[in-house]
Design a protein around this nucleic acid. Structure first.
Lengths: 190, 190
DNA sequence: GACAAAGTGTTGATTATACGACACTATACA
DNA sequence: TGTATAGTGTCGTATAATCAACACTTTGTC
């Protein structure tokens, strides 16, 4: 679907996305104009309106797109709940983040959308924790909520650091690291 | 002329040029295919043929383009042969090089076109040296040929180093450096 | 409060590029 | 030697993106 888009569409959207990410790293969304995005992306201003209604719509669509891909990856790994499944899923998720590094970095960061970080947390909790719990063999009880919170925030912290230092490690290396931390933490609860 | 080209044309040509430069840094021109250029530039292969007949034609056109701009700059500064004119001309020339850094770097380098470096030398000698001599007040005699050779090769060496280390100094700084070296050298001949 | 400057959506016509297919021609290699 | 694989030019058709212009609205400033 996203793959068989016309080359020109992919290029234009990427240019606009990169431009928005760059501008968001400088100032809040509310003071970014369509004109600025078009100029930085080196596209005609009119072209912007072929895809987005305004700047807010653009930001919203981009966020939605990321979460859709995120969910897609999780669903794809949902079958086969063995602990062998955690690692490949983490790899795919980390690759998703790095494919959208410029945008994600800025969405999480200072001028970012607080709702993004929040939705990210919620998504991880809803989509991943049930699986992870099964996989890791954690008892599902009230007490482990703290563990979830710890695990999620910890992973997001790792992701943020990884993105902001230029992703020097491979996605697989990072996945291994996360997996280890999660499993050692989980073993404390058993 | 180059300025009021359609945005799309500028982008496409730039993408192709960058792709060619990158490929030339890996292997000789003769083993680079149109298909490879198109793939790396992320354009349709057919689009290549809208602008170039084949890979050699492309390389030739790009070189010609650079020399045309080079000559344009020299001609533009030809009037007013005071020594105040050397510095601004150097700045413009250095900016030309940095605007085409990827390409120029590779044309001068290992897999580059030996003819390019040669033509560059000749162009500098023909176009610049008469002016420079006037400006610097050098006697025009046989003996100063060595000085020209020294000056030209020296400057090209500086340019190469500047380009290959990522152009951290401004064009103006480099122009000042070249100017100083030239003038000190020239003073030895007076 | 008025005026300039910058931004907004939208339009119609034009053009550059994409795509997929074609019939070829090298190149390689079993 | 023959057969597969990759590359070459060149189409027709479709469409994304451009440009220039428009009539607004917002923002900031004297």
């Amino acid at each position: 679907m996203a793959q068989n888009e016309d080359r020109r569409v992919r290029r234009t959207k990427k240019a606009m996305t990169d431009a928005l990410a760059e501008l968001m790293s400088e100032k809040p969304l509310g003071s970014i104009s369509v004109r600025e995005i078009a100029e930085k992306a080196d596209i005609n201003r009119g072209t912007f309106y072929l895809y987005y209604r305004d700047v807010y719509d653009m930001a919203a669509q981009l966020q939605r797109g990321i979460f859709e891909k995120f969910n897609g990856i999780v669903e794809q790994h949902e079958h086969g709940a063995s602990s062998d499944e955690l690692f490949p899923m983490l790899v795919d998720l980390l690759n998703l983040l790095s494919d959208n590094a410029a945008l994600v970095k800025v969405l999480i960061g200072k001028n970012g959308d607080a709702a993004f970080a929040d939705t990210l947390k919620k998504t991880i909790r809803d989509k991943c924790c049930a699986d992870a719990a099964n996989i890791l063999g954690i008892r599902q009880n009230g007490g482990s909520d703290y563990f979830y919170e710890y695990m999620i925030s910890g992973c997001i912290g790792i992701f943020t650091e990884w993105l902001s230092t230029g992703m020097k490690e491979s996605a697989a290396d990072m996945a291994r690291l996360c997996e280890n931390l999660i499993q050692h933490g989980a073993s404390a609860l058993k």
